[in-house]
Amino acid sequence: MIAHAIFFYTFSIIAVVSAIMVTASKNTVHSVFFLILDFISISCLFIMIGAEFLGMIMLIVYVGAVAVLFLFVVMMLNVAQQKNQWFSGQATSKHIPVGLIISTLIFFEIIIVIGGWKYKPEIFDINNSLANTSVSNTHSLGQILYTDYIHVFQISGMILLVAMVGAIVLTFRQRSGVKKQSYIKQISRERAEGVEVLEVQSNKGVKIDD
């Protein structure tokens, strides 16, 4: 039990501190690295409560894919220029109200969650949960996700697909005048199309039209 507590507090302290550092650090790339550290310690916490599938999926999806894309974007930005805009003078004041509104909303959401825990403790009772049954974590998730919640699952998949198509449509542009390689064209080329044997008469030459 002591070892459990030690690990729990280590991971949660790392999670909270790195979450603070995401917003506090001035270098945006450092922020993303702290975000990654945060994700990793959260997934460690998931594993500690016995939700090993969620923890691993968190690692694969958030750390292995989403955060890599974050890093891509942030590294491409001109960080020095960005810093001047955000940290000097008037520009800052515009962001404060928006941030305040969002943070109050999140604060009330957290209060609702904690209130639920206070007033309906039986929902959060670990002894009633699936953790006690012999079915493994992955199996029980699959049994719920693909039976009772199949429509929600499918709808969330559709939303993601639509978002992906939208992003592609927004960034796609057809440039003209760019030479493109067509593999099928290259492979299916015959000798007859490419080679022409001509009689060349001396002092006259040949005229080749392209």
Binding site: E52, F53, M56, I57, I60, V63, G64, M75, N137
Partner: peptide, 25 residues
């Protein structure tokens, strides 16, 4: 001998990209 061994392997190998990005940046 964990339940999600193959996911663990996949997760760790997908984290491998960070060493390279960090070094390069």
């Amino acid at each position: 001998d964990i339940n999600v061994g193959i996911l663990y392997l996949f997760a760790v190998s997908s984290l491998g990209v960070y060493g390279i990005i960090m070094g390069g940046w």
